[in-house]
Lab assay of single mutants.
Amino acid sequence: MTEYKLVVVGAGGVGKSALTIQLIQNHFVDEYDPTIEDSYRKQVVIDGETCLLDILDTAGQEEYSAMRDQYMRTGEGFLCVFAINNTKSFEDIHHYREQIKRVKDSEDVPMVLVGNKCDLPSRTVDTKQAQDLARSYGIPFIETSAKTRQGVDDAFYTLVREIRKHKEKMSKDGKKKKKKSKTKCVIM
């Protein structure tokens, strides 16, 4: 069974824990209790493949930012979460993405942009803004509501699919490099 290491990042209060708990335990946590770091595991079937999701729910508070490099190193894919009623959390996505790329030393890291709290009427981040940002990053965008469960499975499952595509691409690139290195030079 394939294991996928997913990391949920975003500013404090955007609903990272609520999304994760909704996926794992099928219930909505409405009281806000700032996370330092929590880890969850769940076995699911995605596109006919049974897999184990190892999900790291991270601290959004700035005082825990020193811990970010460590979990970013171990993560295979990242859910970059903002709240649709919090423009600052949307603007912060850029910083999370840049930090992930720096730590992973790669421009090509599996990510999904997630606009959470889409059940709320007080939207300050337009869907088109988020779609445009995701398009500019070359990553999928999904709106979710941890409260109603809308888009929750889709967000995590899409990230797994992005990781699969990335692994497939990397193995193809690896095979191309191996083929090239088999060419021999004969000096007579």
Rank of each mutant, 00 (worst) to 15 (best):
D132M: 08
H27V: 08
R161Y: 14
D69A: 05
A155S: 03
R97W: 15
S181L: 03
V14I: 12
K180R: 10
K167G: 07
Y40M: 10
L52H: 15
H95A: 06
K172R: 12
P121L: 10
S122G: 14
C80K: 01
Q150L: 11
T20H: 09
Y40R: 12
R68Q: 13
V29G: 14
M188F: 03
S145E: 03
V8R: 00
T158I: 03
R73A: 11
T74Q: 13
K101G: 03
K179E: 14
I36T: 12
S122T: 10
Q25W: 02
Y96S: 01
K179W: 06
M170C: 14
A134H: 02
K167M: 02
S145F: 04
L19P: 00
A134E: 01
L56W: 11
I187R: 15
T20W: 09
T50E: 06
G10K: 00
V109Y: 06
H94V: 13
G15R: 00
E62R: 07
T20L: 10
A146Y: 02
S89G: 04
V44S: 09
H94Q: 11
S65M: 06
E31F: 08
T144L: 15
V125H: 07
G10Q: 00
A155D: 00
Q25L: 06
Y157S: 15
P34D: 12
V112F: 02
F156T: 02
A59M: 07
Q22E: 11
T144H: 01
P34Y: 03
D153C: 14
K42V: 06
K42Y: 05
E31W: 05
P110S: 02
K178Y: 09
M188I: 04
Q22F: 02
A130M: 09
R123A: 14
Q131T: 06
R161N: 05
Y40E: 11
A59S: 13
K101H: 03
V7W: 07
E91K: 12
L159R: 00
E76V: 15
A59G: 13
K184D: 15
Q43L: 04
G115D: 01
T124P: 11
N26H: 05
M188T: 15
D38H: 10
K180T: 10
G151I: 06
Q61F: 06
R149C: 15
E162D: 04
S171C: 14
I139W: 04
F156E: 01
Y4P: 02
L6I: 10
F141M: 07
R102N: 03
T87R: 10
K16Y: 00
E168A: 10
G10Y: 00
T58K: 03
K128E: 13
F78Y: 07
K104W: 10
N116Y: 01
H166L: 09
Q70W: 05
R123P: 13
E91Y: 05
A155R: 00
Y71P: 10
A83W: 01
V103M: 09
F141Q: 05
T58S: 10
